[in-house]
Amino acid sequence: MLKGRLGAVLFQLIALVLALGFVSLILISAGASPMEAFKNMFTGSFGSMRKFAEVLVTFVPLLLVTAGLLITFSAGLWNIGVEGQIVLGAITTAGVLRVFVDSTLPPALIITLAILGGMIGGALWASLAGLLKTFGGVNEIFGGLGLNFVSTALTLYLIFGPWKRDGVASMSGTEPFPDHFSLPQVPELRISLWALGIAVVGIVFVYFILQGTYFGLKLKAVGKNFRAAYLLGIPTWQYSMYSFLICGALAGAAGAMQVTAVYHRLIPSISSGYGYLGLMVAMLINYQAIWAVPVALFFAALNIGSIQLPIVMKLDSSLAGVLQGVLVLFVLLMEGARQKFVKKA
């Protein structure tokens, strides 16, 4: 029984319980009630329509990033550079909007161009990591990390230099874009259905590629066994590059959403750490697209719900990050334990 699918689920449930237990211990040691903390996080994320809308605002970029990462993971690549790809998407989007700031073109067209620009920016940045790997022999983990730093430096340079606010030199960010450069939002709420739609299209697209196309099959073949795939005639390095490009475009779209639907300007931490969070989501769901939506939503809810902790209980809201990280660790540990168990049995 423990060998089958049910067994896997059982082990993951144990991991969840262990993670919650671990965080509870931290809470108790800080003198707080775990039940109250979890309750506050829940009501803080699903307690009202407004709060749920905030969760969705976080969910959109996270889902796009996760979708992108599913592609690179399928190709056997650890695209840690996804963080920088979000940033470059945001920079390109802001750049396009800046070009058209005095234009008389319809805003819808400009926003569309800006989002497409962001996707191209993210894809090109991802291609750098791909090129470094393919032709430079630089592992994508190190190349990606390096490029992440470069992307941050580039953001700071733009904010403090060419794109600075008039008479101001501040790391706060660039001048906000005019209102008509924002994706339209649901009245009274901060979520844009357009942004949500783009994110859903992104994950459906990825699901379709991975489940229903030869392209996806070949990608997985490359990921499972690079050499065998090569011997079977799959142009392997090209497929690696394709996966980088697709992931970069989706991460770039996430960056574009941060600019057009959340911050309406470029700020130093424009990626909001969604790249690293997306990596955790992808690991947690064991690279199965079907689970991306609920788990990304859960992580987004933790992010938003945790804001209640400092307000209501005077606890630090980084507890959400602890829970997310611990959860991933325990799931990985339990997966390892299960495999050992299965081998023995």
């Binding site: 931290i26 630090d316 980084s318 990050g321 997310q324 990280g325 991933v328």
Partner: peptide, 14 residues
């Protein structure tokens, strides 16, 4: 990476 994320998050908790 996961460990790093946990630890960095822990840093703020106290």
């Amino acid at each position: 990476l996961a460990l790093m994320l946990v630890l960095s998050a822990c840093g703020g908790t106290p």
